[in-house]
Design a binder for these strands. Structure first.
Lengths: 332, 332
DNA sequence: TTTGAGTCTGTGAACGTTCACAGAGACGGC
DNA sequence: GCCGTCTCTGTGAACGTTCACAGACTCAAA
């Protein structure tokens, strides 16, 4: 019951290992008769190449590792991951490469990742939601193995190529929209200020309103619904006469909506609410959220493309920034 | 700049390959002096074992593959996946094993998966949301490599071990709850009838109401919000006097809620709505959904445990069915 | 002192590939 | 008829491990 090897195929086809190997690897110097015999032999024996043996000599693994840098608790919610995983799996499959998942939640995890990559077990690395100042990033860069990120790695923008949505311009779009609607006192709830989305979306907001004007109108959240609720509560207390709020994620916006409802403010009559992401919650809130759509699928695609190019030894341009679009619903 | 090999470590430590290998693999016959020398040599050289070379001789890969059987479009939404991935990655990491992701969306994908597993590239397989009658399942079983599923594989319940939430009892809980609230005409919107959740949750519903009574009160959806909307519309047309509906997923329930709102029915006064999953949407709908919580994390854990046991050559009990809990909010 | 068991070590072979090399044959141009 | 080029093929070595085996040494019991 042993798995057939390249020897078995060669014997069955009446040729040598070398010829079989050449056919397998797309070398052009294989005669048609040999080709046919080998192809039949492969079909008959059910042969499939042993990647370990191959990797051992080629020094290539045919796999890429995706590193998720969230702590273990905060796992749900983010559709980014699914899209990223699917896209990567699909695009890698086209090259017959595979995707290995790793989590870098604590220091032990990070060491494992470093060891894994340093051990030469991957041809490339995807970094997801990596935090500012993560020493793992530098260690990975040191290995010399291609690495890319989805969204900027703060402080390493120039060393880790990345693709991302145009968070800043998206925030500008939303803020301008609120202004155009005649809103006079527009506040914002940001994401965490150690994430690119948190930073960029606030930048976009102040781009439109001006730094001084915006100063008093900022509260910070941590992307969770709960943090949206409490940030909204703090805003209402500090700025009771606000008539609009730009919330840096839909989930936080959902939280803001319930706080507003509890406070008796009507949306959008009294307060307009703008979200960000156009995630699935955006359509289910009441009222449905006006939000900014991110081209998630395209960002994922470009991220993968970036890594594949690096693996191929090219020098792709980075960053790849993709446009966002305003989705007008009822909340603003 | 070559990566150090076991030879380098052996030389640096003044011992032979064999001794280093023994230490690495936890063999007890290694003297303390050798151990210390080797450990220092490993630290100095930055040695990390080459898994390919190891796999080549041990015939074990130290990795497990997770197969997602959704077509490429329907990817978002399902938190199951994230939890499952995280749990698997975490538990595998403890054994220094890694997780490879594959998607089986079309026939080409399925062939790739079969080839991959048949090629001996994985020590085990996780099957996620596998469809009834999928020939890939039989092919995988034929390889003799351990495989488990999260949720039953319809028609292969006895050949593929699995862990799952007690969908049937969960549906009973919800249906009973609606009855206890004094609801007289309770309808249901099911999931697709080729998924275990679709089947089991309907079973639970009819368990409580009786097959004949339930007959007329059933509409089918496909888990999406949109399908929930239209199924609800069909129900309203066919059974205008219904006063409750058990919807087999929260997302579909969100759809049902908006149809009810459009139709001018108040929830829960006119119509009570019960969901299933206790997913993130459940809290954001208006009114918040009364639903059934699945022990997602525990299901994932048990699924992984099952596979690890199989890999270790044990014969674990299957299926592992885990209890659900009713979460009362405002919609019922 | 001999024996035997237990501990520890080194060595050669094997795992299944790819790759470089050498060589055989075919064919066309001179 | 010879040479050079092109196509095609087989072979040996290498990749970095593990494993079985044989042997050396220690120690205690007979």
């Amino acid at each position: 019951m042993k798995r057939p090897t390249i020897h078995d195929v060669a014997a069955a086809a009446g040729v040598s290992r070398g010829t079989v190997s050449r056919l397998l690897n797309g070398d052009r110097y294989v005669s048609t008769t040999a080709r046919i015999a080998i192809e039949r032999a492969i079909a008959e024996t059910g042969y499939v190449v042993n990647r370990n043996a191959r990797s051992l000599v080629t020094q290539r693994t045919g796999s890429v590792v995706m590193v998720l840098s969230e702590p273990h608790e905060k796992l749900f919610e983010d559709p980014n991951y699914s899209v990223m995983i699917r896209t990567a799996v699909r695009m890698l499959a086209e090259r017959d490469m595979s995707l290995v998942m790793m989590v870098a939640g604590d220091d032990g995890d990070r060491d494992r990742v470093i060891r894994y990559v340093r051990g030469g077990h991957a041809d490339g690395v995807f970094l997801l939601s990596t935090h500012a100042g993560d020493r793992m990033v530098d260690a990975l860069v040191d290995t010399g193995i291609p690495a890319v990120a989805q969204g900027a790695v703060i402080g390493r923008e120039n060393v880790i190529p990345y693709a991302a949505a145009d968070d800043r311009e998206g925030a500008r779009q939303m803020t301008r929209y609120l202004v155009e609607q005649g809103r006079k006192k527009i506040a914002t709830i940001t994401g965490p200020m150690d994430t690119p989305g948190g930073i960029q979306r606030l930048e976009g907001f102040t781009d439109v309103l001006g730094r001084k004007a915006a100063k008093k109108l900022i509260e910070h959240g941590d992307w969770t619904q709960l943090s949206g609720e409490s940030a909204m509560a703090r805003l209402l207390q500090r700025v009771p006469d606000l008539d609009a709020v730009f919330v840096a994620s839909d989930l936080m916006a959902a939280g803001a909506l319930s706080t507003l409802r509890m406070a008796g403010r009507r949306v959008p009559q009294d307060v307009a609410v703008g979200g960000f992401d156009d995630s699935s919650v955006a359509a289910t809130t009441h009222p449905p959220l006006t939000t900014v759509r991110q081209p998630l699928a395209r960002v994922a695609e470009e991220t993968v493309r970036l890594l594949l190019a690096l693996i191929d030894g090219e020098r792709p341009e980075s960053p790849v920034i993709l446009p966002t679009a305003l989705v007008a619903r009822e909340s603003a």
